[in-house]
């Protein structure tokens, strides 16, 4: 099938999409946007989190066809040119990135939290990020990063 979807503000088209493909697969393998990650592909780890019409979703759980005609914003669409989003910058500065495989999903989830709650408490940060697994950091520096980003914005 043919899929039309607006990704990071640009109308995109993918042809020969097999109906069983996920939005994650289309982003990664057909649209050249591998930033969203394929850690579990069953909605448990949050590494593939993207905005779908402004709502964060696990793109591995969205059938590609469900994105037809809709707006998708991925981790690749958060920075403005060379200027990182404050969440991205604080992840780098705080040492919240080790292997980084969870980072794109966490960055999108934290970005969404700070849009909704600009000054979150630690409990609110923990709750908002509870759907994103990280195996390297023990989360401490991720919390630091979100606190710093909240202060910066």
């Amino acid at each position: 099938m043919r899929l039309n979807v607006t990704v990071n503000g640009r109308p995109r088209q993918a042809d020969d999409v097999w109906p069983g493909e996920s939005l994650l697969y289309v982003l990664r393998e057909r649209l050249g946007l591998p930033g969203s990650k394929n850690a579990c592909e069953q909605g448990e780890c949050g590494s593939c989190t993207v905005y779908l019409d402004d709502v964060p979703v696990c793109s591995c759980l969205v059938a590609a066809g469900q994105a037809e005609g809709r707006q998708v914003r991925t981790v690749e669409g958060l920075a403005e040119g060379d200027r990182l989003d404050p969440v991205q910058q604080s992840f780098v500065d705080a040492g919240a990135v080790q292997c980084g495989f969870c980072t794109p999903g966490l960055v999108v989830a934290a970005h969404d939290l700070l849009r909704r709650t600009p000054r979150p408490s630690d409990e609110e940060i923990r709750e908002a990020l509870a759907g994103n697994l990280c195996r390297c950091t023990g989360y401490e520096k991720i919390l630091d990063a979100v606190r710093t980003a909240a202060d910066a914005s």
Binding site: P34, G35, S36, N38, E76, Q89, V92, G100
Partner: peptide, 19 residues
């Protein structure tokens, strides 16, 4: 870290991203 910026931008090439 030198790879930090690429990782937060989603531009770091993991082995599963190769094409």
């Amino acid at each position: 870290r030198p790879d930090g910026t690429a990782k937060v931008r989603g531009e770091f090439a993991y082995s599963s991203d190769l094409w």
